[in-house]
Design a protein around this nucleic acid. Structure first.
Lengths: 193, 193
DNA sequence: TTTTTTGTTGATTGACGAGTCAATAAACTT
DNA sequence: AAGTTTATTGACTCGTCAATCAACAAAAAA
């Protein structure tokens, strides 16, 4: 019963299943069979489309980052003032799509992967650069020469808030996270203006 | 040629080797054989003393946290003012013993482990509580009712700075990390005093 | 209609690794 | 001296899993 044009559908299903499984087990120790099963196919087919488990992981990572990037762009085009720009980035960073258990768990594991897989490292570096430059655009008018340092701090704080969510039980509290980051932002900016 | 009283020596060697190997490979995918080899013994002996790989990981985690705890206590007993107390905690958090590649890599992986191993989760929770209360002791006189929130922010920032170090190349920059945290602290405290 | 391309899987291979065991040996105990 | 405890390892078991293969099915192209 092979319908044609399955490739993109299967690949997408696998990518999503990968994220779910990594998020669910909280580790990269997920078997291709697990992922394939959740995506509703045989493990052989998963290999057929992706070639290797590592490719699957990288595709999943790209997917998470693509969603993130899209949300940032979306929020950013509504922003008028510099402050709004920064707020937009924060809102996107803690959006429901990104700041949820599965994604957070996946994100943490990508960090681990980045330590041994150069490809993953590169992807994460791209994310960091993008975050930095997005923040910087809004921060320069607000914080002047301290913009660089504030952006670095804010970036680290965002990552830290993700990390802390890992140990919490219950659903992630976006409002609290955004609040914490905004708090930092306001405190740092007040010193200049 | 069995000398007696080897147990503590072997165990310590294994714990240190575990940290080194996890830090070196950047993942929990280290074989017991690798660890045992680095510690200068057979894998069978490693199993003899620890029973399982998981026990080895937990012992390594306890070790890292013990060092951290000792450094905090050491720095804390020299502190006179509240501000000095907070500074002491920060200094310990980014001390050469803790803020080095191996330990950082190990730390990150413990976080991952905490997602699936309840024991590890508990250990990490202990660390967080201790950090929180240490910070709070210094912060309450400085930040009053905002102390809780500042402590949470500082805690997240510290973890975030660790996380960011993972992707950097070259040796960790303690001074920069402490500076960033102090920066946050000063900004938050200024709003009160 | 034959052939090729695309989709799909059950079965298999081959490697690797955690944990066990039997055996050996040195030290302590009685 | 005989027995017990501690140290130590090579060899082995048993399971798991990534990756491959052979085979089958259906659509598209020839």
């Amino acid at each position: 019963m092979p319908k044609l044009g399955m490739e993109p559908i299967r690949k997408e299903a696998l990518v999503k299943a990968t994220i779910v499984e990594i998020g669910r087990t909280g580790s990269l120790d997920v078997t291709v069979s697990q992922i394939a099963k959740r995506a509703g196919m045989s493990s052989a087919l998963a290999h057929h489309y992706f070639g290797s488990k590592e490719e699957m992981f990288l595709a999943a990572m790209r997917h998470v980052m693509t969603i993130y990037g899209a949300e940032v762009r979306g929020a950013l085009c509504l922003a008028q003032t510099p402050m709004e720009r920064v707020e937009a980035v924060l809102a996107a960073s803690f959006s429901p799509a990104n700041f949820r258990r599965e994604a957070i768990g996946a994100w943490l594991n990508f960090w681990v992967l980045a330590q041994s897989a150069p490809q993953a490292r590169r992807l994460l570096a791209v994310y960091q650069r993008r975050l930095r430059s997005n923040l910087l655009a809004g921060l320069r008018p607000l914080a002047g020469s301290r913009a660089e340092s504030v952006a670095a701090g804010l970036g680290a704080l965002i990552d830290g808030l993700y990390l802390r969510e890992v140990l919490k039980s219950g659903p992630p509290d976006r409002t609290a996270a955004v609040g914490m980051a905004m708090d930092y932002l306001r405190a740092q900016v007040r010193l200049v203006g």
